[in-house]
Design a binder for these strands. Structure first.
Lengths: 337, 337
DNA sequence: GGGTGCTTGTGAAACGTTTCATCGTCTCGC
DNA sequence: GCGAGACGATGAAACGTTTCACAAGCACCC
């Protein structure tokens, strides 16, 4: 314990110099086979484990990248993380996962530590577009950064995001094709860019073909969905929408519960389309149609952009990758025979 | 970038020695206020960021612990992670999250890297009780390890887990109190210790009071739940159980769907109790009664045990903490008026 | 037999901190 | 006016690696 065995001990036991041991570790081809074997044997015998701090100190940088997410318990982000991990693994790079828990302060502290660790790069969904000075400092000092799900406002960085306007359009086209002419949008608050975009795409694609009622919600939770369902159910049948598009799946689940509770059938009386395609969309009492985002792909691509920027020393073109979501159709919009 | 500013540059600008700068960083009270301010000013001016590798190299150990989980996308583990993070934060320690994805090989690689990083300790749910040699090596070389949700078989380590036998009992007592005398257990495969324990506790608490039908499932998914519901629904009404206890919430959601689909009402015809109390248990079409595990508490306690072992140099008593789950009662077992 | 080139191995100099023994300077009490 | 402390600051020695200029040995060719 106390006296950790170092490269020196290995060298002594194998009867070579420390430089040779280091070469066995990092450039085995420079060492004659016999020597290499002898050193390997000594390493095994002593249970030597390389001290990464010393290596990093000498090398000047680490072999890890970090991903800072808003919420580790959110399925969206865990999938993004998994995608990032897979891509990083392919390149022999390690991913450190940090959780800002939507707190500006915690985000700042994480960036402090990451910079002390000299991580090679950072993937991040910033908590707040207004408090980014710490992040800008990191960038200014030379750490590559890729923005995840926050395309706008950072033209000078790489970013990956999903096209929410298009997602809204997908939902609208699907409902129109199913013959709906009175539809509702449930979502909010309208300060969230994602909600705005989904609403915009939805509304634009409806055009004059269908009438749109917008129900603004205070947040994106199941409870808000239930409340919204109440408002819709109270309308006289002739004015009541025959389909609802929700800004995320939690709302959709709430709307489903609320409507069912009031005796309206899904999809016969009211069809529902959600957003995100979380695992439980398929497992709901009436499986939900939903707009699916390529979450893993998001993480994977972000990582590849980052690694590219790290490797291409200097001459790197920043890119903004926008993914197209897809609609997954299930029972909540498809009348079962 | 290339020429990173170090403690030396700060010292020069502030007109002091490097030792003094280091003291400002680590033992501010040893430095006179005027000097301290001057140094701080220089640090800010140069944008100096301490190099953690060098610090660690000198100090001999890091200030981070690691948690190795089976699956980052599983809500159970993300909550455990959050608990660990919270506890660690209180002690100024950092948590590195590693994802073994239930792969023995990936677990081994993670442990390799963590040992090179000289983490202070490791929280881990081992992938496989049969392939633990890498972990034992880590322990043998002196890194403290606490086992999470894997109590048995490691008497010589600290561990935290939840009492699954008691959880089964809770479900049984609740159903008996509600007057059920024909009940079913849905879960499997019976090779999983957790499933065995839940079944055992459930069965034992029923005793002779109620008749038990056990439906063995191939796994713990929503689909399996639906299939199981089909089997139950086919029974003639006099033999059909009036309540079902499922080994986890996914199964329970599947059973709920399956029963509803076949025209049986929950809870009027059949009551359901799930296990885990995942977020969607409350959001289901019929909100599910469920046995809740203190997931965050699990992570928090594991971290505290680990930190205790780290601090108490040598004289540390290994402990095995077993948490008691609690029953959350919702509409799926409570006839709504 | 001397020059050339290749393969292996060497050993010391970094890398940027922290620590620690030491030294100067002040203050205070007598 | 002197010794005892307290207080601040110093600078060199670690920490364990990687790198790099160089040397030793050997084979080969003219």
């Amino acid at each position: 314990m106390g006296a950790t065995t170092g490269i020196k001990d290995v060298a002594r036991l194998a009867g070579v110099s420390v430089g040779t041991v280091s070469n066995v570790l990092n450039h085995p081809e420079r060492v004659a086979e016999a020597t290499r074997l002898r050193v390997r044997q000594a390493i095994a015998e002593l249970g030597f484990v390389r001290n990464d701090s010393a290596r990093q100190l000498r090398a000047g940088n680490s072999r890890q990248i970090a991903i800072v997410v808003l919420d580790v318990t959110n399925p969206f982000f865990t999938d993004v993380v998994r995608g990032a991990e897979m891509a990083a693994e392919d390149h022999g790079v390690l991913v450190v996962v940090c959780n800002s828990s939507e707190s500006v302060d915690r985000e700042r502290r994480h960036l402090d530590v990451l910079e002390e660790q000299r991580v090679r790069g950072v993937l991040i969904t910033p908590v707040d577009d207004a408090h980014t000075s710490r992040l800008e400092l990191l960038i200014a000092r030379g750490t590559p950064v890729v923005l995840v799900d926050r395309g706008s406002g950072w033209p000078s960085r790489c970013s990956v995001a999903v096209d929410d306007v298009f997602g809204g359009r997908l939902a609208a086209e699907h409902l129109i094709a199913r013959g709906h002419r009175r539809v509702a949008f449930v979502g909010g608050p309208m300060s969230i860019q994602q909600v705005i975009d989904r609403h915009r795409g939805f509304s634009a694609a409806l055009g004059k073909t269908a009438r749109l009622i917008t129900v603004d919600t205070p947040n994106l939770t199941v409870t808000s969905g239930r409340v919204a369902a109440g408002q819709l159910a109270e309308l006289p049948a002739q004015q009541r929408p025959t389909a609802v598009f929700c800004a995320n799946d939690l709302l959709a689940l709430g709307v489903l519960q609320g409507l069912t509770h009031r005796g309206l059938r899904v999809p016969e009386d009211v069809a529902i389309v959600g957003y995100d395609d979380i695992e439980f969309a398929a497992a709901a009492a009436v499986p939900l149609s939903s707009v699916r985002q390529p979450r893993e792909q998001l993480g994977r691509t972000a990582t590849e952009l980052l690694l590219d920027e790290i490797q291409a020393n200097g001459d790197h073109q920043h890119r903004h990758v926008l993914f197209q979501p897809e609609l997954v159709v299930r029972a909540s919009t498809e009348k079962v025979p």
